[in-house]
Every structure is written in structure tokens, then in C-alpha cells.
Design a protein around this nucleic acid. Sequence first.
DNA 1: GCAAGGTC
Length: 829
Amino acid sequence: MRTVLMVAEKPSLAQSIAKILSKVLNTLYTHTRISLCVCVILTGKYNNWDKVDPAELLSKAPTEKKEANPKLSMVKFLQVEAKGCDYVVLWLDCDKEGENICFEVLDAIQPVMNKPYGNERTVYRAKFSSITDTDIWNAMNQLGEPNKNEALSVDARQELDLRIGCAFTRFQTKYFQGKYGNLDSSLISFGPCQTPTLGFCVERHDKIQSFKPETYWVIQAKVFKGKDSPISLDWDRVRVFDREIVQMFVNMTKTAREALVESVSKKEKAKQRPLALNTVEMLRVASSALGMGPQHTMQIAERLYTQGYISYPRTETTHYPENFDLKGTLRQQANNSHWAETVKTLLAEGINRPRKGADAGDHPPITPMRSATESELGKTRGYCFYSRFLILIECIQLYGMTDTCFCIFYVFKCGLSPGFTEVMPWQGIPLEEALPTCEKGDAFTVDEVKLLEKQTSPPDYLTEAELITLMEKHGIGTDASIPVHINNICQRNYVTVENGRKLKPTNLGIVLVHGYYKIDVELVLPTIRSAVEKQLNLIALGKANFHQVLQHTLDIFKRKFHYFVDSIAGMDELMEVSFSPIAATGKPHSRCGKCHRFMKYIQAKPSRLHCSHCDETYSLPQNGAIKLYKELKCPLDEFELVLWTSGSRGKTYPLCPYCFSNPPFRDMKKGMGCNECTHPTCPHSLNSLGIGQCVECETGVLVFDPNSGPKWRMACNKCNVVVHFFEHAYKVQVAQDSCEACEASLVMVDFHKARTPLADGETQHTGCVFCDTLFQDLVELKHATMRHPMHRGGGARRGRGRGRGRRPGGRGNPKKPKDKMAALAAYFV
DNA sequence: GCAAGGTC
């Protein structure tokens, strides 16, 4: 028997294929998701922002392919499945990305597959345009080969995006962050999709800014007949920009007492039924009608998909296949409390074919698969709105009625039949007052004639829905990545989302785009991507060589990059207007160890300390705030220590601003505070305040927080664990000695005479917080203590990681300071 | 700390 491995990109597809083929073949279906196995990355020192000129990323820096998500160990999984197989059929999505994934899969599995018999071909590619029986079988009967050229074009795109994005992002970020203190963005990113996306928003902003209002005039009349209440008439010329002309018309009508009906006409107008939903359309409607952002929409869509409520939510197709079971789909909704009546009427009266949409050959339009109740989906607004919305959309496509409007002379009135808007109220046209019936020659009495002076108003900020449309039109991003790009420009603080999901660019966003306009407008034009894509297409078609195209495009961007760097002053001029120089930002805080002057604390993202005398900036941990720490100094560099507090659990520890970026000892890394410092004698170090191994994580140590009294506590220096103990004690100290049983440092506790919880009015005790029975009820660790290694394994741990957090001078703990001490000495002599 | 692209 020969074994065939079939690989699909998602479980739903794998399942369908397995089901269809099982009618003839013996199929075994394994459920796992295959996404990208590998991604392209920069290696080694090229990841270091400080050691590498970003220009090198466009030339020298090597790239490497690496498993994208090592935790999934996708490569290993594929190899296990492929072992002993004779053939492979690749059912990946039928686009260039899919072709690329084909080769990722092949790279992983070919080494472990059986050797081919003679010259026999073992690798096959299935090309399908929909997931129906006929299509799947057609694909099986015409198996081809994976397309290497298309895969290569994707490789080239990945490499270009990475190199160009990283080079520009690093340069911009470092240049402006080093100069300005209130940019309020920790990253000033650039990318061939996100930058044009921002460009659209700023373009609209510019239109609003440069808008000059113009005065125009309208005539409004009110007439009535008999005892009826007056009706308003609109002018058939709508508006006029010439004062003299409008005045002439007013003069003509002012004296009139009577208005005659000149003609009556009746027109039927229908609002077209919406198309079936593809991803982009869903994002648009969710944003404009439900006020939900694309990222949020996709999250919920994915949940609804995995729970079986809707079909696969990533598709470009808006067309239902001929044999699609519309009635069956609708029948599913017949008992839904919200629209059972509508659905039943439709089923009874028969349904129209949905509007003809575009067939992209991927997945059918997003369709409800079963009826949902609000309680099933949870009470959150998103859930019930969303499910409802999807199902309603379905109804529309099936609901054939049209709206009717009547136009009567120059009054416009609507008499609506709700049609599909019965289930989609937000699509409805507001009903206006009813018009009395009238015929040609009828006379109305003129109630009043008014001349109104008005001004044209500027356009509004771009709505998210409009932005999505623009991105789709210009080929910026894909259905799956559009939400990511929009999210990016929000997170980088380039735009903010205003009421009605309008995107308003921030000062930073505006300055960036105007800077690109000045230096190299191509960097922000939507064509930046399509131009590159044209080149890549040549690779895909086999008309150009991969290396040549890559080199050619990189050369262009290398020139652009150097020109950008040389011309950055042009963008800087704009920055100066909106932002303050770093030296003028922030409040004086702690003292610099080099010049002993006060450094300034810049709270704007990324928060940091800046010494304007030395012109040095020292980074700080993010997502927290720093306070002064009693003017205490680091013994190594004389920088004043600061107390850092994280927002959430109130974990607090001191850190030295210099050591934080320049680790003083070999066993330390960048970004460590005193609670991880291995200084042998400093009273703030891990060695002095560490108590014992963390009760939750593998590598952390619980470190005493001497500033936490009277709610004394210790906190893990790696994870979020905070342990409270000895509340209201007068004094708590970490002792020199360690516990014999678990090697944790002993703790000395002093209580007030009146409040001591110790037996016999004792006020002092020294013991192990994990093992001492006297301390048992004083350490709020009951559940946690049980997890301490002492109790977990029924004894002290043997062998690994001994004595962390112990005092120096103990067995084998000498940590030699690096040369930094010597280097520092030079400063202070 | 950086891109965009898949997928959950």
C-alpha cells in the first residue's frame, strides 16, 4: 500500500477535503492547523539597534529563515506525519502566499518521506477554486506542481519588507527620540503598508485644513391647502452661489399668494440589496454600522467561526455558488427570536437569488451556519450585535423587495416599503411627513418664502470604513492584514479614533507625512507597494531573476534611504514646531552619577531620564513610574537610585539608571533593577534582599521590599508574584543566615509589644518564611507555600539552582564585577 | 523595540 500525505492550511478545509475524498479513498484525518512554518529574520548583531547602522540592513545584513512559532513546533509535527509517506498532495490556498507555504512544507517533510520509486513524481499540488465536491475532484484529477517562481516572489517580498521597514523604522526612531522629549510614541515605525495607510488619513486632514468655505443661498417655501398643515418645498435649483441671481428669484416669488402644481410624476426608486459578505465588506459595515474596529471585529468573527456559528471569515468572495443551499441556510434561522417572522415569510413566499458578486475562488461569502441566541453568545454588546448583524445580512440577500420613492415636482418625499431594511434598520431611509395627494393645477396657499444664507462646510475626517475602501482600492494590505495596519497607526499614536470611528491624525502623524512629502513623496504614496509588487510579479511569472530583482529594488531603496537621512532636517523643521527638545522636556528628578547634576524625568512614552549636561539619555522600564529614593546612590557609579513601581500589583523595587542600560556584572543583562543585581555587598541588591525561590516561576527569586511596611511584602524579580507577610510588624529585615531545610534566607521580624501575634508576648523572631512554624500564619502564602519546592517535592531541591537569593560569602557565590568598576573609577577620581 | 503575511 502507498501512503499519501495531504496538507491543507486550516482545519475546516482539511476536514472538507477528507470528507469528499473519503467516498473513494481510505482517508485518515488529523486535525491541526498549518500556517506559516517559517519567517524571515535578521540575525545576530544586526538585531542590535545601537551597534549597527540601519543602512547596513539594506545591504550587508544577512537574513535567515526561522521557525515562526517554535512553541507550535510545526516542522516537527509535519515530519512526524510525513514519515513513511510515499506522496504528498499540497492543498494550500491558491495564491502566491499559498505557493510559498508549499515549499516551506516541502523543505520540512521531504527528508523524512520515503524515497521515490525510480523517476516517479512524489510531490503534487492541488489547485481548487472552491470547496465543493466537483472542484475538489477536478483538482485531484489534474494535480500539478507547486510553482517555484510564485513562491520566490513571496520570499523576495518578505525580505524587502523586512529590510526596508527595519532600516527606516530604526533610523527615524533613534533620530527623533534622541531629539524630542514629548513625541509620545515609543516607536516611530515605517512600512510599505502602514505608512500609506497613515498617508490617507493625513491627506484628508490637509483637505480639511485648506478648506475655504463659500457662501451660498437657498430659497425655502412653505405652502398649505385648506386646513392641512403646511408642507416645506425644496428648491429645484438646490442652491446658488450668486447673491444677485438668488435675489431675483426671491423678488419673483415674494409677492405670490398662490402656488400651482405644475406636474405630478411618480418614480420608483429602489435601494439595492447589499452584496454577500466578504471580509473587507464585513469590516466596513461593522465599523460604520456597529461602531466596531476591524481588529475587534476579526477577533469576534474568529470566535464565531470556531464555535460553528458562521462560515470561514477570511474570504474575498461575494458570490454564492449556483448550488448553494440558500433555503437550508435560511431554515436554520426560522426559530430565531429576532427575525423568525421575516424568515418564515421568506420561506413561504419564495426567495430571490442573491445579487451576483465576485468569485475569488477562495471561500464562500461569510454565512451564518446556525441560529444563535444572545444568551449563547454572552451578553457583551459585540457578540449579540455581531451575530445578529451577520444573520441579518443573510436575510437581505434573500429578501427580494425593493423600496419605493415618489418624486413630486420639486418636493421629494418617500413612501417606503421597508424591504430588506426590516431586518437591517440602520440601512433604512428616514420616513418623512406624508404628502397630501394632489393633481396638476391644484392651488396651494403660500405660507412663507425664505432666503437662507449658508456656507459650504469642509469634509469630515476619514471614517474607518472609507479608509478600508481606499486601502482595498490601492492594494494596501490584504483582507487579513488591513485590520493590523489600521491598528498599527493607532498604537503608534499616529491617529486617534474619534466619535463615529473617524480617524484623526495626531501631530506626530501629520508631521511624519508632511516630512515625507517634503523629502520623498514616494515613501508615503500608495504606489510604493504596487510599484514593488510589479517587479515581484516578474519573478512570479518567471520573467525575471529572483536575485536581480531583489538587488535592483534594494538598490533603489538604499538610495532613497541615504537621501532620506541626508534630508532629515526637512522633517526635523516640522518636528520642531510641534515637539519640544529633549533637554527642555521633563521635570528635574534624580542626580546623574557623572556630573552630579539633576537629570530630567521624561514621562512621555518611552519614559526615560535625560542628563542635559552630559547629553545622555537613560532608558527606564515601561508601564510604570519612578520616584526618588531618599537620595541613595549606586555604589558602582554614584547615580542616584530611583524607585520603580508597576501600576498593577504595586510591585516596587529600586534601580540604578546607569546599570539598567549598562549591566555591571557578567551574569546580568540589560534591563535589570537592583532586585536582580548580583552586587556582593550593596544593601539594595538581590544578594542582600533576596529571600528564596519564587513560588510560581522557575527562575525568579522573591526579593524583600524594604519600603513596603507596614504592609510588608516580597516580590518575585522575574514574574508578577507578590507575597504579603508580617503585616503591622515594626521592622522586617533579611538575615545573614539561610534556612537549613530550604536554603531560603532567614527573616528577622520585630513587632510592637501591644500588637505582637507571637506567643507569650514575644516581639522578635528570626526564621524561614517557608518552613518556620511560628511564621506559618503570618505569611499570606498558604496556597503559595504549598507550591514552594519545599512542599512540592517533599524536601529541598537537589542539585539545580541552589542558593539563589542567599547572602554572599556563602558557598560558591562570588560574582566578579566586570571591568565597569575600573571604567567608572576614571570618572570619579 | 523594527515589516507584512499567514493562521487561532
